[in-house]
Simulated scan of single mutants.
Amino acid sequence: MGMFNSMRKPRGFNHQYIYVDERKEKLAKMEEKARRDLGMLPEKEFNPEDIRGKFIEGTTHLKRRKASGRKPASFGIILIIIAFLLYLWHYLATGSWSF
């Protein structure tokens, strides 16, 4: 029995990119944006991938949820739990399982 209580979780997987320099890419994007603002480059057409994830980056609680990988409880599961608790309460109050 003691063996099952002392088992640790395995170490999580964390892949570090070797050949990617995020700082350099960010700097290149800033330079490109500045050149577009100054009129040196033509306007860039709309791309939905450019705005993907911007809302999550702006809120701290969503960033934490995304980092932990936790999913929110669905509305259906919450309703099922409430219905079960009401049914159990009815049984405890009346002593019979039927309505």
Rank of each mutant, 00 (worst) to 15 (best):
72 P>G: 08
47 N>F: 00
59 T>Q: 03
93 A>D: 06
68 S>I: 08
66 K>P: 01
60 T>Y: 08
79 L>P: 06
14 N>R: 10
95 G>M: 04
10 P>H: 10
5 N>K: 15
63 K>T: 10
57 E>F: 01
52 R>S: 05
91 Y>L: 14
56 I>Y: 04
41 L>G: 00
60 T>F: 07
48 P>A: 05
60 T>P: 04
85 L>T: 15
4 F>C: 03
54 K>N: 03
44 K>F: 00
28 A>P: 00
13 F>M: 08
37 D>I: 09
85 L>E: 11
39 G>D: 02
95 G>V: 02
82 I>E: 09
31 E>I: 13
66 K>R: 15
65 R>Y: 01
58 G>C: 02
45 E>Y: 00
41 L>K: 00
93 A>T: 13
56 I>G: 07
95 G>P: 00
37 D>R: 13
8 R>N: 11
31 E>N: 13
82 I>C: 10
66 K>A: 13
40 M>V: 11
94 T>W: 03
34 A>R: 15
78 I>L: 11
14 N>G: 07
61 H>D: 08
81 I>H: 07
24 K>I: 02
51 I>N: 01
77 I>N: 12
17 Y>C: 07
43 E>H: 00
50 D>P: 04
55 F>R: 14
42 P>R: 01
79 L>F: 09
89 W>D: 07
91 Y>R: 12
70 R>F: 01
84 F>G: 15
77 I>M: 11
27 L>M: 14
97 W>A: 14
46 F>V: 04
7 M>P: 05
22 E>I: 05
42 P>E: 01
98 S>K: 12
74 S>L: 08
6 S>D: 10
31 E>A: 15
23 R>S: 07
68 S>M: 09
47 N>K: 00
77 I>R: 14
63 K>Q: 15
